[in-house]
Amino acid sequence: MVNKDLELFDCGHRACGGCGAALAARLVLKGAGTNTIVVSATGCMEVFSTPYPETAWKVPWIHSLFENASAVASGVVASLQKQGRTEKVIVMGGDGATFDIGMLCISGAFERGHDLTYICYDNEAYMNTGIQRSGATPYDASTTTSPAGSCSFGNKRPKKDMPQILAAHGAPYVATASIAYPMDLMQKVEKAINTPGPCYVQLHAPCCTGWGFEGEQTVAIAKLAIETGLWVNYEMIDGKVTKVKKVVRKPVEEYLKTQKRFRHLFKPKRQDAEIAAIQAIADKNAEKYGIDIKLKKE
């Protein structure tokens, strides 16, 4: 059972005010409970939660390297199994550690079928080192390694479809969630850790510093991502989509306008072609997952 009052991620961590990832960590542990071991990959969450000699985690927690979090977790799982212990193992990695750097070890762990849950808090760039693009950075977002300017509109490539990649490994449970819907997030984490085998949960966690908005807007922006169709909350069991969050869709502009990383699409000149290309991504998502609520015509 999800215990909303359980606090296993303590005050005093050094995340920015209004941090989406800090909120994600709190909610994940509420869903996971006390019988949990967390393995963290390098990333913003690892850095702000554990500057030595402090730690915000109140569950056993280990960090080794950027790329090997799922390999470390595989070892922890094997050891616990040998000892007949029942702790659940969670890997927490950012999108950089998941989509790019840790890919090889994640693929290995999923292929070997260890009983672990991989949780990716997706803030769509390498935020800790100063906002460099990653495989999760959306189309046209400006980052320090994909800067928008006279020759470019920012990141040229669309976001990698990581949930599908891990579902293709035969993962029994793959889900996406957002900090804008805390109850849904906690339930998905709970379901993932109680499903035997390697499971994957990807969390949308807006980053006020990296995306360029005020900390108080974090939840509102996460909600807008879902309402515009640029982020889809769904659940996949044995590779088949079983549950999707449906919405009455808003134009993507409403989401793009709120963030400085998309500012170049509106200033100094409105870039209609680029906005239309992003709208096409949202339309494709809507069609693929069937998220549109059809309103009855009066």
Binding site: C11, S49, W57, K58
Partner: peptide, 18 residues
């Protein structure tokens, strides 16, 4: 490696950032 007591981040009073 390095070890720390669970929840020791409480030593860091982040209220001063406000």
């Amino acid at each position: 490696g390095c070890r720390a007591r669970p929840g020791k981040a409480r030593d860091n009073k982040t209220g001063s950032w406000r």
